Simulated scan of single mutants.
Amino acid sequence: MSRRPSVAVLDYGSGNVHSAVRALDRAGAQVELTQDPETLLNADGLVVPGVGAFAAVMDALKAIDAPRWIGRRIAGARPVLGICVGHQILFERGVEHGIAAEGMGEWPGEVTALPSDVVVPHMGWNTVRAPEGSTLFEGIEDQRFYFVHSYAVQSWDFDQSIGSMNPPKVTWSHHGADFIAAVENGPLAATQFHPEKSGEAGTQLLRNWITSL
């Protein structure tokens, strides 16, 4: 029997992490919920979950020095997967109720409120538009995924002329306006939706990610 890839789920006080742990286990990973730096750095994959407000999640991450460990993994080309607010904090900043908070700045963009003329939070199943060659969405491009959010990144302005690096693959969805549903960028990937709540399609997305570790 082949070895199950090790996946650390970052434990920083975020809610709903146990459903992510169970989903990753179903998808074929050996999972540990932890904030131990050595485990976070050495696991085959790191998952950064998140629910709640952008600023509060950033504060909680900083309280355990998590941005440093996440950054070290990314710098070392070690896979990281962000989920929901764990996706949002990878962008430059978030603005909620007029209050701006700095994110990790791995990608350009600002997390802002979805349009006021639609029902928020955007809660429920929605389709996505995945790019050609996506690893996360291989075989599930036409499936629906489960979203729960009122804020999102609604534009993408990435300089694709930098050297010869492959540009990130960006997946979009729509709720009142187009917004970024997922990004795949070398070792770093993230989804605005919750794969752990997205049934078999979500399990397959996690399986795709785990297989790529």
Rank of each mutant, 00 (worst) to 15 (best):
D11G: 07
V17D: 05
H18C: 07
R22P: 12
A23W: 00
D25N: 14
R26I: 04
R26Q: 06
R26W: 15
Q30I: 07
Q35P: 07
D36V: 08
L41H: 11
L41F: 11
N42V: 13
G45E: 10
G45H: 05
L46C: 01
V48A: 03
V51M: 02
A60Q: 10
A66C: 09
P67R: 08
G71R: 12
A77R: 13
L81S: 04
G82V: 05
I89D: 04
F91E: 08
H97P: 13
G98R: 00
P108Y: 15
L114T: 05
V118P: 11
P121G: 00
H122A: 04
N126I: 03
T127A: 10
R129L: 09
P131R: 06
G133H: 12
S134W: 12
T135I: 15
L136V: 00
E141D: 12
Q143I: 10
Q143V: 06
A152Y: 01
D157N: 15
D159N: 10
D159M: 03
Q160A: 12
I162Q: 15
N166L: 14
P167I: 04
K169Y: 14
K169Q: 12
K169R: 13
S173D: 02
G176Q: 00
A177F: 05
A177S: 09
D178K: 01
A181Q: 03
V183K: 13
V183N: 08
E184D: 06
L188R: 15
P195R: 00
K197N: 01
G199W: 11
A201E: 06
T203Q: 13
N208W: 15
W209P: 11
